[in-house]
């Protein structure tokens, strides 16, 4: 009797810690993005709430929580209500097997699934369902176009993304996240030539996966107003926002784990290494976002099918040949 209760309590604590981390991380990333964009544009960005506006996101979250929950007329209620959850829940579930490193010998990973990568790949593609449902359910033509675009986008980008992941899996010889990190103890994967290509493909496809410029076509502010979340406001909008930024964190964490050696690194504790790598990649994605224009939807597909997919296939074959040798 005691043991199941104890397990339950531990599970609840771990869940609370993970959720707390996600919320704080998303709020930090929103502030960080505003700061990065501001400094790229030679502005200051938020400066009023807290030190250099550090509490700005907290204020924004409070505002969003207090906002009226508007449901436009004519929405498809089920998909309208479920869409924000579909955008957030899979991303949160991914955190089950992201290895954060270890503190005092305790491994900071909720559960090191032996099919970790497969699990993550399956979950990250569910997010797009949320976007599609939002686009369909909103009863707005712009949202619908955004939803359609995201469906088209995900079809083309899942393949190079998965192929790039598979390259890393082949080198590590395991689907478990911890094993992949341990395989990189000596040399990070990214320092091998064909893994570097896989890394580049992963970052590009990952940017498309999380719908950020230059691949933010489902949102496409200048074309579709706000794309799939045009009609959303208040807490539901905040959920999409949370989903987007957490997704960005997840993709960066994956890239760091698969190619940059995860939490392994000299001198500093593993957790710090992991966070440095992840947030570094997130910052890189922000830097790209605030520099480049958006590609058109058919160009995006052309790029995915004509460049990314063949290159990643060729890369995979070369990787296999190297391993067989």
């Amino acid at each position: 009797m005691i043991i199941p209760v104890l397990t339950l309590i531990i599970m609840l604590i771990v869940g609370a810690v993970v959720l707390g981390f996600i919320a704080v991380s998303a709020m930090f990333l929103i502030w960080w993005e505003r700061k990065v964009s501001a400094h790229i544009q030679t502005r200051y960005g938020p400066m009023r709430v807290g030190w250099h506006g550090a509490l700005q996101s907290v204020a924004d979250v409070i505002k969003l929580l207090l906002k009226e929950n508007i449901t436009p007329s004519g929405v498809d209620r089920l998909s309208w209500w479920l869409a924000p959850f579909f955008a957030v829940v899979p991303v949160v579930m991914v955190f089950v097997c992201i290895p954060f490193g270890n503190i005092f010998g305790i491994e900071l990973i909720a559960r090191d699934l032996n099919i970790g990568i497969l699990y993550i790949m399956a979950l990250t593609s569910i997010c797009v369902l949320g976007i599609f449902m939002a686009g369909w359910g909103s009863n707005n033509k712009y949202s619908l176009l955004g939803g359609m675009r995201s469906a088209a986008q995900i079809v083309s980008y899942e393949i190079p993304l998965v192929l790039a992941m598979v390259t890393a899996v082949m080198f590590a010889g395991s689907l478990s996240m911890q094993k992949i990190v341990e395989a990189q103890k000596g040399l990070w994967f990214v320092f091998q030539p064909n893994m570097a290509i896989a890394f580049a493909i992963f970052i590009i496809a990952g940017t498309a996966e999380v719908n950020r410029t230059p691949f933010d076509i489902p949102e496409a502010e200048s074309e579709l107003v706000a794309g799939f979340h045009t009609e959303y406001s208040g807490m539901k909008f905040a959920m999409f926002f949370l989903g987007e930024y957490t997704n960005m964190f997840v993709i960066s964490a994956l890239a760091a784990t698969l190619f940059l050696g995860g939490w392994s690194g000299p001198f500093l504790p593993p957790v710090i290494w992991f966070l440095i790598k992840t947030y570094g990649l997130v910052t890189f994605m922000m830097w790209i976002r605030w520099t480049l224009p958006r590609v058109r939807v058919d160009q995006l597909m052309g790029f995915a099918w004509k460049v990314l997919t063949p290159v990643s296939f060729a890369n995979l074959i070369v990787a296999g040949w190297i391993l067989m040798k």
Binding site: V36, H39, I40, T42, R43, Y44, W287, W290, T291, V307
Partner: peptide, 26 residues
């Protein structure tokens, strides 16, 4: 085509990076 594309994107990224270190004008 791919290589020159990447190089030219990097040039653009360099411009924005340069501006990060300029004192904000606002």
């Amino acid at each position: 085509c791919i290589i020159s594309g990447i190089w030219n994107l990097a040039k653009g990224l360099f411009v924005t990076l340069k501006n990060v270190f300029v004192k904000p004008v606002t």
